[in-house]
Design a protein around this nucleic acid. Structure first.
Lengths: 350, 350
DNA sequence: ATGAAAGCGCTAACAG
DNA sequence: CTGTTAGCGCTTTCAT
């Protein structure tokens, strides 16, 4: 069994050594043409490059990462709470875009809103020596993330910021987005507007609730606490609370669903009960999805720029990796109200 | 500035050496309690474990991967064609489940049906020394994947198999799924059934088309080639072809949409044109999604077990990594027709 | 401009 | 049962 070529095991990758031998230089030189090409004689350089091509050599990111300590391993981690939520898949795509443009690879983990998994995956990522992390923290004072930030690992928070910590973050203006949506509903004549939200530990929901209260107040609409439903951020939540809402003596004339999963649940129950949208009830969702327009009726929704969030977050992270002590920033992106067909003006006095 | 603790750089991770010093043993022993605990004296073991805990030591997967050549790096790669397609996010979840149960981490890349990116990401993954790969090949004779398989890298194909190669794969019975769906439609009295499919280079679509032709034939329904639309697998495809279908002299009474994105496009156009479902036209989609029930009307669809596909694929991959020369297998999973409200019997003779 | 050599953190012989 | 040691593939002084 001869040495090279025929190992038939995992050794399909030529190594630095092979290239060096092929080009008749030292491995150091090969490494140089890869990293500091200007420091090597043009002739040698082309010879080496030729060898690299010939052997189809690809540097091992692993070895590189082990050796380089400062941050040039070109790997980042992305930790998202729920991959089933289309909002986050847009985020993923945004991160991917930015990463692929920069030669970064990324590891992604989906922790399903589960703190145990969040920790597990974070450990794995550290253990993989990522250069940095993009995370949507489980809560505003997510201990695990907090600790990581303090340790100095480049990290940017998305969607949910972290209180009590100097950290880069890119979030959405939940307050304004909600306010705008509600005012649209109010302008249509709605006063009994129900709201279904996820857990208030998650800052985004708190902001949306705050906006709800304040907007109603600002328009002199009395607050009916029974119209405020707080559950988890799932489809199921949408179902349950919509049923409750429908069963009220004085049901709402409009429902503001706190995220796209909740919206779906709401729609499901509404359709099931043959209540017509928007004739019988108006529905407005936070979080747009690309197929909202395929719904019947097309859903009016607050669009969050998920893709953009991901892209910006990645860009910020790359910057911070390069320049660890730049001052931290929080970028807040605006939402956009996508008016479609699921809301309708209320007939006054009827 | 004292040595440890205060480096404030990336050195928050204690190393094997630190643990060894703390427990007053050699690094080899520490390594042993991690990997072959039975080979170390109980007393030493607990001492070491205590030290590990105290220092919050986490082994570097990177170093391990560099060292171990055979396949114990506990990292696999997952290459998917389109993360926006909910089917694939189910696959991702399935892989994640299996991986997290086994201590594997995974890198995921979304190549957006783009062969260039497919190659790029595959290179990155190799460069990361993954133990194996799960891939949905771009086509049946995807050169890149083929080459990889031949090189001996553990690899399993999902959704789309590879012809001319001995390789593990887990796919869905597209033929049967389509046939079942079509026969349901036929049993409802439909004969003018349109079908919108993605590109025929993708084997799944070829199978679905084959099933279409053969099922129609088997039921003595004449084939109208104008009812067969082949495009890409996007939402847009659904829109375009549905419009075409609607504009026909004798439009179809039912549309069979080739995937969930196409279904969405179809629905969108139908709603836009105020054609009622199922009164005016029946719609049946290949590929179920968890919110199909929230649609109006709830969509009747062929459910592909995406999660299961991912899980099985991962399990097969782990097996193959352990036992590289076991014989290859192709597991084919069945679909399930989810009858909901979007199809209706045709009024005969009217 | 180039080479020699020292590790990065870990595993796996090989000795004891 | 435990320690010593030689690398894994690469980057990076330090010489030359």
């Amino acid at each position: 069994m001869n040495a090279r070529e025929t190992t038939s095991e995992n050794k399909f990758m030529a190594g630095l050594k092979d290239v060096a031998r092929e080009a008749d230089v030292s491995i150091a030189t090969v490494s140089r043409v890869l990293n500091l090409p200007e420091n090597v004689h043009p002739d040698t350089r082309v010879r080496v490059q030729k060898a690299i091509k010939k052997l189809n050599y690809k540097p091992s990111r692993v070895a590189r990462r082990l050796r380089v300590n400062n941050g040039a391993s070109n790997l980042i981690g992305l930790l998202i709470p729920d991959i089933r939520n289309p909002f986050y898949v847009e985020v993923v795509r945004g991160v991917e875009k930015a990463a692929s443009e920069t030669g970064y690879a990324f590891i992604m983990s989906n922790f399903s809103q589960n703190v145990g998994k969040e920790k597990l995956y974070m450990d794995i990522m550290l253990s993989e020596s990522v250069d940095g992390l993009i995370v949507a923290p489980a809560s505003e004072d997510d201990k695990i993330v907090l600790q990581l930030v303090k340790s100095g690992l480049p990290l940017v928070c998305i969607d949910r910021a972290l209180v009590n910590a100097k950290v880069d973050s890119v979030v959405v203006n939940n307050y304004l987005g909600t306010r705008e949506a509600l005012e649209y509903l109010i302008s249509l004549g709605h006063e009994r507007i129900a709201v279904i939200l996820g857990p208030l530990e998650i800052p985004t929901y708190r902001e949306r609730l705050k906006a709800y209260r304040e907007t109603m107040l600002a328009h002199n609409i009395e607050l009916d606490e029974n119209l405020i439903k707080i559950g988890d951020s799932s489809h199921n939540s949408g179902c349950i609370f919509t049923r409750e809402l429908l069963a009220m003596n004085r049901p709402p004339t409009a429902i503001f669903a706190g995220n796209n999963l909740i919206s779906l649940g709401t729609l499901e129950v509404l359709h099931l009960n043959k209540v017509r949208i928007p004739e019988d009830i108006s529905v407005l969702g936070f979080d747009d999805v690309f197929w909202a327009i395929s719904l019947n009726p097309p859903l009016t929704a607050v669009s969050q720029p998920g893709f953009e969030i991901g892209r910006r977050a990645a860009e910020m992270l790359f910057q911070r990796i390069k320049e660890p002590k730049r001052t931290h920033a929080k970028v807040v992106l605006n939402t956009q109200l996508m008016v479609r067909k699921s809301c309708k003006a209320i007939a006054v006095n009827n």
